[in-house]
Simulated scan of single mutants.
Amino acid sequence: MSLIVNIVLLVFLLVMALAVLKTRHLFAMAMLFGLYSLLVAGLFVVLDAPDVAFTEAAVGTGISTVLMLVTLASIRDGHEATTQGKSRTAPLIICVVMGGLLIYGTHDIAELGDAQSPPNREVAARYIEKGQEETGVPNLVTAVLASYRGFDTLGEVTVVLTAGIGVLLLLGNRKKIHVKSKGGQHG
């Protein structure tokens, strides 16, 4: 049953990705990205990673979609972006190369559910056996996220904060440029 759910979710993800590629309307694209993130969150739930699913749902579906919609609302003229006269070859090559590198990188990942893989054999066992003793935190998930992976969690939060500040700075500069251009035309 789980395999069927995984296949259905993956098919929906593929359809959603193709829809994002084909649409030219920016509002529809933002909504499709939000749905894509929601499907990814569902896939994480099926893969027994609810903490990652919550993060994906909050950041991917929630915050990212809101930031995209706010950015679209702040566009002065409201016209859709056009790609006329611009080459699409370089972005395509970059995407293919990066996708190839990501696929190549997955060859060293342990097979899903392999009980003899080092993370399952060594790391997880240590967390379970010594987690409360080493961290003083009774909840194992909290011990892993806050103590063992504290710097990783801090890095993730820093990335989200930096992205948010960058968007705010870009939107703020856009308004200043718009005001300056109006003043220059009338003065």
Rank of each mutant, 00 (worst) to 15 (best):
S2Q: 03
L101R: 01
L112H: 09
K176L: 01
D152A: 09
E133K: 06
M1Q: 00
D77L: 04
L171W: 04
S64T: 02
V123L: 04
E80M: 10
A19S: 10
V5E: 02
L102W: 15
L102C: 12
L92R: 06
V144G: 12
N173I: 02
G34A: 09
L112A: 09
V46S: 10
G187D: 04
Y104C: 12
D51E: 11
L145S: 07
R174H: 13
G85A: 11
A28T: 14
L18M: 01
L18A: 14
L3H: 11
S147H: 08
T23W: 12
V46M: 03
R149G: 12
H107C: 00
G78I: 01
P119T: 01
G183I: 09
T135Q: 07
G105T: 02
N6Q: 10
I165R: 03
P138Q: 04
N173A: 15
L32V: 11
L170E: 03
L169G: 10
G150E: 06
V40T: 13
F27E: 08
C95G: 11
L161G: 14
D77P: 04
L18F: 05
G155D: 11
T106V: 08
G164W: 03
I109G: 04
A19P: 09
A49E: 14
Y148A: 09
A49C: 07
L38T: 09
V11I: 04
L32I: 13
V46A: 05
R174F: 01
I93V: 07
L170V: 00
S87M: 11
V20R: 01
V20W: 00
L43W: 05
T106I: 00
G136V: 03
V66Y: 08
L69S: 11
K22W: 08
A163Q: 02
G42H: 06
R174L: 13
L3C: 00
V66D: 01
L67H: 14
M68R: 10
D51M: 15
A146M: 07
R76K: 09
V20P: 03
I165S: 02
L72W: 13
T142M: 15
F151N: 08
I103E: 04
S87L: 00
I94Q: 11
L169P: 04
I128L: 10
I93F: 03
T83I: 13
T82V: 12
Y148G: 11
G42R: 05
Y36T: 02
L101S: 10
D51T: 13
M68E: 00
G136N: 04
G34M: 05
D114R: 05
E156T: 00
F54A: 15
V141P: 09
L43M: 12
G60E: 03
I177L: 06
A146W: 11
V157T: 06
M31G: 09
I103D: 02
I128V: 15
E156I: 05
L69M: 10
G166L: 04
E56G: 04
